[in-house]
Write a protein that binds this DNA or RNA. Structure first.
Length: 914
RNA sequence: GCCGUCUUAGCUCAGCGGUAGAGCACUCGCUUCACACGCGAUAGGUCAGAAGUUCAAAUCUUCUAGACGGCACCA
């Protein structure tokens, strides 16, 4: 068989995905075993405006590893893909498009047309990520792809909204909210980020007290809001201001008089001890306002300009411009006390970076107290979700829940789920799933639907169950928390996806959306289905740029996964991402992927070698079963193979992907390539069919274990193996076409683990390494053969005798002399092996005695360091008494061994000096 | 301000009570019939610092320093 000398990832990547998908290999229905347990994952829906970034690549890799692993284990496996509608982002894209192409505003085209265009935009540009996921090799069931604005998912949204409203969990109210003047919408607390500004200013304004010549100085970072002040507050205990309480202020730049009130909230120690109170523009002031029954005066428009209430001459002016003017006027009036430099942290709109304005506004909210209790209870009683890694996410999650505030869910956008609430002419509200239902409730009155849409995260919060067909409004649909084994056998409808796949098994996502998404999904899924959304949550770390900072456009330190796929191959990128410790942040470094590109090439070439010599042989799992008659290297590699399989399964079960990668890497490269293939080369090259069969079989099993990490490479190679066919698939998939992805994942066989073989093989390896060391240190040319003399116990002699050919090959020796003692010329290099054995390589004419002395001395020195530590421990009475007996025994044996070895080495050294 | 994470070989990172590990880089030697994206052999670390618990600490506890993250406050 002709096979290229180096692995070309692009070729393999272009060949298999389409076949896998079109044959339905990604669908759970490919599994024909009616009793197969299910395994399900829903993807954290990327938003339709996005393109694949390294965080996605990482998360998708882990999800795909789990999915492929479980599928191979025979689970009925579903990884459900989808996207979310990204309210604000899409809205902004469409607004920009309208502006650019037609110089129109959304109001110019109207809501209906705007939404139509948003859909068109989504159809055209919204599939970037889903296309990129195919390149990744993601084994998602595309037939179950969902979008948060699909009909069913929209029904689910309305249904949830109505239920929550009817039960009093959703309310509409006037509150101080975070307002983004650019997007002209309210934002939830989680969509607002803090940005520290070092060049902020704290402005001190003097307010004249009516009927006196006194002034009260207040400080503010937002001077323009003084136009909306409706009081000045001081602490009632503050002696400085006691006399002023109850008096009024003539508010400058306005014709209003405002009271001076006493309120405990004011910290007498901070600033001037007097606070301007702007109830409509500050959350704390709002609370003060409620306590003192103050007017709530709004002085800003929704676009961040001042309104008429700010004064006719400021009406329409931008808030920052107004700020300057206000300060200037205070200066002119002689009422500007001072302006200090002040480090301030500003609330910023996460998406557009505009300074967020706290503003009084009527919005819809979800009451979170009961949901929070529900989630905390779940955490307490069942430990759900179980975070991996557990620390610190569990603690952060519960701490956040404990301080949870109500969630603002309305958004002043047109793209999204319009709130299912209608108003009649009197302003009475009717919440219903449909307009008809609302009109019924209203007794046929004319109604207008609420103009706002819901937060995108509201629909994402239903993702775990809305994606499985839950719409909640059938009245006889799936019922919460019904246990399948309690169901009567009669009159059963066929189980739905919701019955089968919820709860999902694990959620893989980033730290940044634990609150935004994970927590809300936990609460809403519990509330509406009675089920858990998932048992486990794997929180991935952040892939940082080369500068150690999170990748971002503004820092321009991003690394495009697609570029990495092009440069190193998808498989190398995937297994590299999986090799990062679960949850740990990692600085990006191309060199590290190179490791795995090299690994891919190594796998390719190892297979190439096996195939070049495979005449007459084919993969045959029976060839590994009867181990009694096998040679030491065979017993050893089978033992290692099974141990690796057991450990890989164990590691994946604990979401320790990096451990699994490291096990596979070392098994394949060190054990299989460096030792096993090398040891078997002679047999293979001489066309030993039995030997070749075993090596092909071991290779095939190794490829299976690598498949979840490196799907393209392993499929490409597997299909080339003689004997690889649909007949080798796992029983549940026996009718599918030939593919490695539906073979059984090696479970590992405990009984194949052969400690004796591993120990014996270790002696052989040790012997070869010692000889190689002598060769290298004594500058023996690779082409020169040596002879090896070994003094060892009878058992070890027989081991070496049995593997003589292999030892000679790998140590480049032409003879091995075995005996009870060494009989060699003085001009020999010597070394000791464990188990009391000693070796010598005669180097007549070649030996450099100084060098040999140095060599022996350095070996002695190394052993001496260890010996000293051992002596220290063993002479410590406390250790001998209190440490476990086995431990003490172990050290004693080790000490004897070292003493014996050093004695031998010393003798050899003296002999050299004699 | 509160909570948390990290600090291990030149670099990037594993390990997390019982003899310090990997990959890359470095040094030396190899056109050895799968692979130079390779093979073989070395070298390199008082595991940030201090104190404590323990027979035993990179690993547990406390403190200190530095890096980072989350939350709160911000007149």
């Amino acid at each position: 068989m002709e096979i290229a000398k180096a692995y070309d990832p692009k070729e393999a990547e272009s060949k298999h995905y389409e076949r896998w998908e079109s044959n339905g290999f990604f669908r759970p229905e490919i599994n024909e075993d009616p009793d197969a347990p299910k395994y399900s994952i829903v993807i954290p829906p990327p938003n339709v405006t996005g393109s694949l970034h390294m965080g996605h690549a990482l998360q998708h890799t882990l999800m795909d590893v789990l999915t492929r692993w479980k599928r191979m284990q025979g689970f009925r496996t579903l990884w459900l893909p989808g996207t979310d509608h990204a309210g604000i982002s899409v809205q902004r894209k469409v607004v920009e498009q309208l502006k650019k192409e037609e110089n129109k505003t959304p109001l110019d085209v109207g809501r209906e047309e705007f939404v139509r265009r948003a859909w068109a935009w989504k159809e055209q540009y919204g599939n970037t990520i889903t296309e990129q996921m195919r390149r990744e090799g993601a084994s998602v069931d595309w037939t179950r792809h969902r979008f948060t604005m699909d009909d069913d998912l929209s029904k689910a949204v309305r249904s949830v909204f109505c239920t929550l409203y009817d039960e009093g969990w959703i309310y509409r109210g006037l509150r101080i909210v975070n307002w983004c003047p650019k997007d002209k919408t309210v934002l939830s607390d989680l969509e607002v980020k803090e940005e520290t500004k070092k060049d902020g200013k704290l402005t001190y304004l003097k307010y004249p007290v009516v009927g006196t010549d006194q002034t009260v100085t207040v400080a503010t970072t937002r001077p323009e809001t003084m136009l909306g002040d409706t009081a000045v507050a001081v602490n009632p205990k503050d002696e400085r201001y006691k006399g002023l309480i109850g008096k009024t202020i003539a508010l400058p730049l306005t014709d209003r008089e405002i009271p001076i009130v006493a309120d405990e909230y004011v910290d007498a120690e901070f600033g001037t001890g007097a606070v301007k109170v702007t109830p409509a523009h500050d959350a704390n002031d709002y609370q003060i306002g409620l306590r003192h029954d103050l007017e709530q005066l709004l002085v800003m428009n929704d676009d961040g300009t001042m309104n008429a209430a700010a004064g006719a001459d400021l009406d329409g002016l931008d808030r920052f411009k107004a700020r300057e003017i206000v300060v200037e006027r205070f200066k002119d009036l002689g009422l500007l006390d001072k302006v200090e430099d002040y480090e301030i942290s500003l609330p910023i709109c996460e998406r557009c970076k505009t300074v967020v304005e706290p503003i009084l506004s009527e919005q819809w909210f979800v009451k979170m107290d009961e949901m929070r209790d529900m989630a905390l209870e779940l955490m307490r009683t069942e430990g759900v979700p179980h975070f991996s890694p557990q620390v610190p996410h569990e603690k952060v999650y519960t701490a956040w829940l404990e301080n949870l505030k109500d969630w603002t869910i309305s958004r002043q956008l047109w793209w999204g789920h319009q709130i299912p609430a209608w108003y009649d002419a009197d302003g009475s509200v009717y919440v219903a799933r449909t307009e008809e239902e609302a009109r019924d409730k209203a007794g046929g009155k004319d109604l207008t639907q609420d103009q706002d849409v819901l937060d995108t995260w509201f629909s994402s919060g239903l993702w775990a169950f809305s994606t499985f067909g839950w719409t909640g409004n059938s009245g006889k649909g799936p019922v919460a928390s019904r246990q399948s084994d309690e169901q009567p056998a009669v009159n059963r409808r066929p189980p739905t996806d919701l019955d089968i796949y919820l709860p999902t098994d694990v959620l893989v996502t980033g730290r940044d959306i634990i609150f935004l998404w994970v927590s809300r999904m936990i609460m809403l899924t519990r509330k509406f289905t009675g089920k858990k959304a998932f048992d486990d949550v794997v929180i991935t770390g952040t892939v940082l740029g080369k500068d150690g900072k999170p990748m971002s456009k503004s820092r321009n330190n991003g690394v495009d996964p697609i570029e990495m796929f092009d440069k190193f191959g998808v498989d190398a990128t995937r297994i590299y991402l999986a090799s990062i410790a679960t949850g740990a942040d990692i600085k990006w470094n191309d060199l590290l992927i190179e490791t795995y590109r090299n690994f891919a090439n190594k796998i390719w070439n190892a297979t190439r070698f096996c195939l070049m010599n495979s005449e007459g042989a084919r993969v045959d799992h029976l060839s590994l079963l009867d181990r009694d008659g096998l040679s030491l290297p065979d017993k050893w590699i089978i033992s290692r193979l099974n141990q690796t399989a057991i450990d890989v399964n164990k590691a994946l079960g604990k979401y320790e992907f990096h451990t699994a990668v490291s096990l596979l890497y070392h098994f394949f490269w060190d054990d299989f390539c460096d030792w096993y293939i090398e040891l078997k080369k002679d047999e293979i090259n001489t066309g030993d069919v039995e030997a070749t069969t075993r090596i092909l079989t071991i290779l095939e099993i190794a490829l299976r274990m690598l498949h979840p990490f490196m799907p393209y490479l392993t499929e490409e190679l597997w299909l080339k193996l003689p004997g690889a066919s649909a007949e080798m698939l796992a029983p549940a998939y026996k009718n599918a076409g030939a593919t490695i992805m539906l073979t059984a994942f090696p479970p590992g066989d405990e009984s194949a683990i052969d400690a004796a073989a591993e120990a014996e093989m270790q002696s052989v390896i040790d012997l070869i390494k010692k000889v190689r060391n002598i060769r290298s240190e004594m500058n023996i040319k690779p082409s020169d053969r040596v002879s090896i003399h070994v003094a060892a116990s009878a058992e070890m002699q027989s081991i070496f005798a049995a593997n003589e050919a292999q030892i000679k090959k790998l140590a480049r020796a032409d003879s091995i002399v075995l005996g009870d003692s060494l009989d060699v010329p003085k001009a020999s290099a010597k070394a000791v092996l464990s188990g009391g054995a000693e070796i010598a390589v005669p180097l007549e004419g070649l030996i450099d005695f100084d060098k040999e002395r140095e060599r022996l001395q350095s070996q002695i020195a190394k052993l001496d360091t260890e010996l000293q530590r051992l002596n220290g421990q063993l002479s410590n009475a406390n250790f001998v008494e209190r440490a476990p007996a086995e431990k003490v025994q172990e050290l004693r044996e080790r000490k004897e061994e070292i003493e014996q070895q050093t004695a031998t080495l010393r003798m050899n050294l003296e002999a050299l000096n004699a």
